[in-house]
Write a protein that binds this DNA or RNA. Structure first.
Lengths: 219, 219
DNA sequence: AAATAGATTTAGACTAACCTAAAAATATAA
DNA sequence: TTATATTTTTAGGTTAGTCTAAATCTATTT
């Protein structure tokens, strides 16, 4: 019976914890959810009472097993709905985030399991992020930032680090999609930008873009 | 920005108004939503302030144009999601109501229009109820209760009046589905029950069942 | 038409989720 | 290591949606 609000807090804490390994701070959660730090502080007490997080005053929080299970389930639902929106309803990958944010709170594992079957058990969402399975296991993909590749090396686009609208639209413009083969042709010392070959077209990609593109080097 | 709660009130008022034509009473709404009459009374004032209903103390309420538009849109979404659940995710027609009740509040006309296209512009939901179009127009079907047919007459099942789980499962059991051809073979004075022929099997249907089954007599 | 029953509204209160401002704790820097 | 800045918590308040109990209005019945 976790409410939308509780689910959103748990998801935010989960995602912040991925980046910091000491856990999520009050301020970071407040920032991420757009609510005041005072509200977050209040809520952390409640989540702790429900044994969803481990909370000690003035310290960063971590999810309990119970809290993590809920968070991962929300992420599973979010990503499956994103696949549905892109694959079946023809939304573009930069348009689906907010809708999935609503759909992820629909409460039915029967529904989500059937949806997964209907979508043919996709392993990644439209941004390349892995979809947790029914048991909450996230099969992470071996992937590196495009900056790790040297001249002459080839990678296959697996995902993006930055999934902001602006970046996704930029990639769309450049006709760079998940699965595309990318070969590094040249790296310029000057600004670290790369000239790459994708399909039969050549692009110049700034270091910033390369940092935000994930690739794998084996098929 | 109508909240789920507001949407649920408007939908309830819309549906109650269909049956009573004087409008919906406080008690009926309270009954239908499972909230106390006091709460409903409170809420009616607020809905009136927002010009969603016409409310005079102690009198049954009716929706304004604005309120009706919202109610019909919710019903449109509810029914389209039901079609999705049954046609694409293989739920049975008696299983989809509660889920659709959640999905109907997802707020995006872009989403619902694309869903409609994806479903191939269905005109009726799995229970035979008409799906309002984009402009809120409900194309009602000429249909009569099965009790209106005399011996020898044939009808095609268009929908159900009672869409309770029990009734839908009963019909499933009898292998009676939307679109089936039904011919009245005999009417028993004794209990008003009918013997009917559907496909190549013969059933005995109680008067109660016949009352709750809608048919049309032309194709 | 008065009495009673039933429906509706008002009064007062509760909870969840939010807020701002002030206080307290922790972290940073001189 | 003391002063300052930042983060976090506490205190007190708001709003939406709910409740029960009591009061009031409307409808029904004799």
């Amino acid at each position: 019976m976790a409410s939308n609000t509780v689910e959103n807090y748990l998801k935010a804490i989960f995602q912040l914890s991925l980046k910091s390994d000491t856990g999520a701070t009050t301020n970071a959660i407040s920032e991420s959810l757009g609510t005041s730090a005072a509200t977050v502080s209040d809520m952390l007490k409640k989540l702790d009472n429900q044994k969803l997080i481990d909370y000690k005053k003035y310290q960063a929080v971590k999810l309990t097993k119970k809290g993590q299970d809920i968070a991962i389930n929300i992420i599973r639902k979010h990503r499956l709905w994103e696949v549905f929106l892109v694959d079946k309803l023809d939304f573009k990958w930069d348009e689906v985030h907010d809708l999935a944010e609503e759909l992820e709170h629909i409460d039915s594992s029967e529904l989500i399991n059937r949806l997964e079957t209907f979508l043919d058990h996709p392993k990644f969402d439209p941004h390349g992020d892995p979809i947790p399975d029914k048991d909450g296991i996230i099969h992470r993909q071996e992937q590196v930032s495009l900056t790790e590749l040297n001249v002459g090396q080839t990678g296959y686009v697996t995902g993006v680090k930055d999934s902001s609208r602006a970046f996704l639209q930029f990639l769309d413009n450049q006709k760079i999609q998940l699965g595309n083969q990318i070969t590094i042709k040249e790296i310029f010392d000057y600004d670290q930008s790369r000239t790459v070959l994708s399909g039969d077209t050549q692009h110049s990609l700034s270091i910033q873009v390369c940092k935000n593109l994930f690739v794998k080097t084996e098929i």
